[in-house]
Simulated scan of single mutants.
Amino acid sequence: MSEPSRPEPRLVPHEGDERLAWDTARRVLEVLEHAQDERGEATLVLTGGSMGIRVIGELAGHPDAAVIDWSRVNVWWSDERFLPGADGERNGVQAADAWGETHELTWDRVHPVAGSDEIASADAAAEDYAEELAAAAENEGSDTGLPVFDLALLSLGPDTHVASLFPGREDVLRTDAPVFAVEDSPKPPPTRVTMSLPAINSAQRVWLLVAGAAKAGALATIRRPEITATEAPASAVRGTRETLWLVTEDALPGMPEDPDPAPGGTAG
């Protein structure tokens, strides 16, 4: 039986980084509230990157954040750097710093990837994470090996990578495991753990953050209808219910990188 068709991505421009981070945080809160009303809990797959971490900070400080029961929010990571657990370069550590102590999460619902000081290898960390996902799925009464993901929040890399799925690599097409190790990442550090494309695409909603003129080329590439997942991994991310490309206007092709200042003014 063929897979049901998914909605095509919808591009949503924002006037700048601040508006993108704020509006995305508001959208996340709406998804969490709806999921908790519907299922009693909510599940996020989070990302790293400067904008991904910024959104987490905006989420923590948003005036509407109090409507969410944060003790019933599950948190997973689409990828992680295989470094010691407390290393400041890890996505989870940066996210925890951005989150602060404003809202209390339930630790058993937050699922960091094991660090290099906690487990023998990236392969073992990937296997361990897959087992955690399967246990959560079983607890929900699912035999898919994956729990319900209400939202996967991702960032577009300048080379079109997403999570730790990099262009030109056959592992982008892997379907044999929901999580796997990346041993020679073109972006440091070289050793990482990433969700597979099918795991990411199991999410009901997949949102791709695209901020800054430096991402304009990558955004133009993933918008090409003939592009393949191997050529541009981010082009292949799709939610089962919704896919949004949340972008700043300066990332749109054709936008000037350095706009001329207004008459009588100076560039900001």
Score class of each variant (00 low, 15 high):
Ala65Phe: 12
Pro9Lys: 10
Ala236Gln: 04
Ser71Val: 01
Glu15Thr: 14
Leu246Ala: 11
Leu151Phe: 04
Glu170Thr: 14
Arg72Asn: 11
Glu249Lys: 12
Ile119Asn: 07
Ala25Met: 10
Ser2Leu: 15
Leu197Lys: 02
Asp97Ile: 13
Ala220Leu: 04
Gly141Ile: 02
Glu15Trp: 03
Leu59Val: 09
Asp17Met: 06
Met255Val: 09
Ala130Cys: 04
Pro7Phe: 04
Lys215Trp: 07
Asp176Leu: 05
Ala60Thr: 07
Val31Gln: 13
Arg169Leu: 13
Gly141Cys: 08
Gly264Tyr: 14
Glu132Cys: 07
Asp37Ala: 15
Ala136Pro: 01
Arg223Cys: 12
Val75Arg: 11
Tyr129Asn: 05
Trp77Gly: 03
Ser196Leu: 00
Gly212Val: 05
Leu59Glu: 02
Ala152Met: 04
His161Ala: 05
Val210Lys: 06
Glu131Lys: 11
Trp99Met: 11
Ala126Pro: 05
Ala98Ser: 11
Val45Tyr: 00
Glu242Tyr: 05
Ala35Tyr: 07
Leu20Val: 06
Gly61Cys: 03
Thr240Tyr: 00
Met51Phe: 09
Asn91Thr: 15
Ala114Phe: 10
Thr266Ala: 15
Lys215Phe: 03
Arg241Met: 08
Ile56Ser: 03
Val210Asn: 06
Asp128Gln: 15
Thr221Lys: 15
Val73His: 09
Glu231Phe: 07
Ala130Gly: 13
Ala177Pro: 00
Thr102Trp: 07
His62Cys: 09
Thr24Tyr: 08
Trp207Thr: 02
Ala136Lys: 01
Asp184Val: 01
Gly212Arg: 06
Ser235Pro: 07
Val28Glu: 05
Ala42Ser: 15
Leu20Thr: 07
Ala214Asn: 13
Met51Tyr: 01
Glu118Asp: 09
Ser185Asp: 01
